[in-house]
């Protein structure tokens, strides 16, 4: 009897895994109810600009039929993984229009920023 239920349990587990949005980059974490919405991060690109500052652009898509107001918070890290305090580390709103992709660009506050951690969530109105 117990063995009969096992395939069902495995199926449910697989289904749950398929439902969970897999992050394209572990440095980007999506919070709260945002998981429940049909928004995905599709690409993360970074480069060092002519001022020797790290620039990051994240691309995502809002597959919902509603406009969403999202916000991000980025922490900049040096090559030892230490946080670089910055006034740019704060929740910043950006738009995600329905059924379209969106892009957000960020720039490091100092030349010693080599890595980052981004949190994204839906704005709580």
């Amino acid at each position: 009897m117990k063995f009969r239920k096992l395939p069902i349990l495995i199926s449910v587990l697989l289904l749950c895994t398929a439902c969970a949005t897999t992050s394209i980059d572990t440095r980007i974490q999506v919070l709260d109810s945002f998981w429940g919405t049909d928004v995905h991060i599709t690409n993360v690109a970074s480069f060092i600009n002519s001022s020797d500052l790290l620039e990051v652009q994240i691309t995502g898509v809002n597959e919902e039929s509603d406009y969403l107001k999202l916000e991000y918070r980025i922490e900049w890290l040096d090559n030892n993984g230490f946080l670089i305090p910055s006034k740019l580390t704060q929740w910043t709103e950006f738009p995600a229009f329905e059924k379209t992709d969106f892009r957000v660009k960020m720039i490091a506050p100092k030349t010693n920023a080599t890595d980052f951690k981004i949190l994204i969530r839906e704005v709580n109105n």
Binding site: N49, S50, S51, L53, E55, K87, L88, Q90, T92, K105, M106, I107, P109
Partner: peptide, 19 residues
């Protein structure tokens, strides 16, 4: 003020005007 200053800082750094 946070929003206005953050946008100004990011834009200034991205423009290369302070480099």
């Amino acid at each position: 003020f946070h929003k206005a200053s953050s946008e100004a800082i990011s834009s200034m750094l991205q423009s290369g005007a302070v480099n």
